[in-house]
Simulated assay, not measured.
Amino acid sequence: MEWPVSVALAQAVSTLPVGKEVYYEPKMDGHRLVMWRTEDNVRLQTRAGRDVTSVWMDLALAGMQLPAGVVLDGEGIVYVDGRISFGAAQSRANSTLMRARALAERHPAHYAVFDILRHPEHGDTRGWSYRRRRSLLEHLLEEYGVGPPIQAVPTTTDVELARLWYEALQPQGVEGLVVKVGSSTYRGNSRQWRKIRHAETVDAVVVGYTGPAARPRHLAVRLPDGRTAFSQALRAPLAAQIAALLATAGPARQTRTAAGESFSAVGMDVVVEVLSGTTRHAVVTVTRMK
């Protein structure tokens, strides 16, 4: 398996899927991270393949509990006052090395692992069924005595328990459920899973902006159907977050949407949530950075 690995994704749905051999997991509100345990150390990658080990160093250190050759898929989460805080995870992900260390001391990160992509004895497990991978993951964590801050995400085939999780865990920062078929293999870049969230949003990839880089006015985002749309005017806090990322994103190039609207295109590892009811329009509503 070569670095970086392409991760499996989830398609948003409005109703909870049910059926035979369907598994349900709480959807943690954090940052997707793949954990690579090498012979000498631990590396962490984002879902886009960027190396973010330096800003999640506390998780990298925790990953040394694992045997060499393991690759795990999961979510980096941060608790604030007993609740999962997406804002705290976002601050960590977008911080400098020095600031990341300070944030880690104040609010240590946790790794909610939900899949195993490689095992030291069995090699690449992506072709295994989810049911078999999940059993292997649980056995690995138990065999090596792996504990917090690395923990397996709960899973169940009981739809009533899943519905209880969906309702009862929201105050703790759990944003919904991820649904997987027990016989399914792990396919990178495929929206093979399903997710149901309390907020009716979809993920969009930031591909550019309008206005000056130091104070962007609108975002250009690529929607799940491949279209590029502009966001509404950015509020000051979000504009400041985007500006900080643009400062390190390299030079932009001028391009146009299919409708002929110009914007500054830039390569960024940034995903935002937009209200699903606005994706039919040329202007979408961004709720937050993801």
Rank of each mutant, 00 (worst) to 15 (best):
Y23F: 15
E25T: 06
E25H: 02
P26H: 11
P26L: 08
K27T: 06
K27V: 05
K27G: 01
M28P: 00
M28T: 14
M28G: 06
H31Q: 09
R32S: 06
R32Y: 05
L33A: 02
L33H: 01
L33R: 00
V34N: 03
M35F: 11
W36D: 12
R37W: 03
R37V: 05
T38W: 02
T38L: 10
E39F: 00
E39R: 09
R43D: 09
L44D: 03
L44W: 07
L44P: 02
Q45W: 07
Q45P: 04
R47G: 11
A48L: 12
G49V: 06
G49N: 04
D51R: 04
D51M: 10
T53E: 03
T53H: 03
T53S: 14
S54D: 12
S54V: 07
S54A: 13
S54E: 13
S54F: 12
V55M: 02
W56G: 01
W56A: 03
D58V: 05
A62H: 03
M64G: 00
M64C: 07
M64A: 03
L66V: 10
L66K: 08
P67W: 04
A68V: 07
V70P: 03
V70H: 06
L72G: 01
E75K: 01
E75M: 02
E75Q: 03
I77F: 07
I77Q: 02
I77R: 03
V78L: 10
Y79E: 12
Y79R: 11
Y79P: 00
V80D: 05
D81L: 04
R83Q: 13
I84Q: 10
F86Y: 14
F86S: 02
G87P: 14
G87A: 13
G87F: 09
A88D: 08
A88Q: 11
A89T: 14
A89N: 09
A89I: 10
Q90Y: 14
Q90P: 07
S91W: 11
S91M: 15
S91E: 15
S91K: 14
R92P: 13
A93M: 15
A93T: 11
N94I: 06
N94Y: 15
N94K: 07
T96V: 09
M98R: 14
M98W: 14
R99E: 13
R99A: 10
R99Y: 11
A100L: 12
A102M: 13
A102K: 14
L103R: 10
H107R: 09
P108K: 02
P108H: 04
A109N: 02
H110I: 05
H110W: 15
H110Y: 15
Y111A: 00
A112H: 02
A112S: 09
V113C: 10
V113R: 01
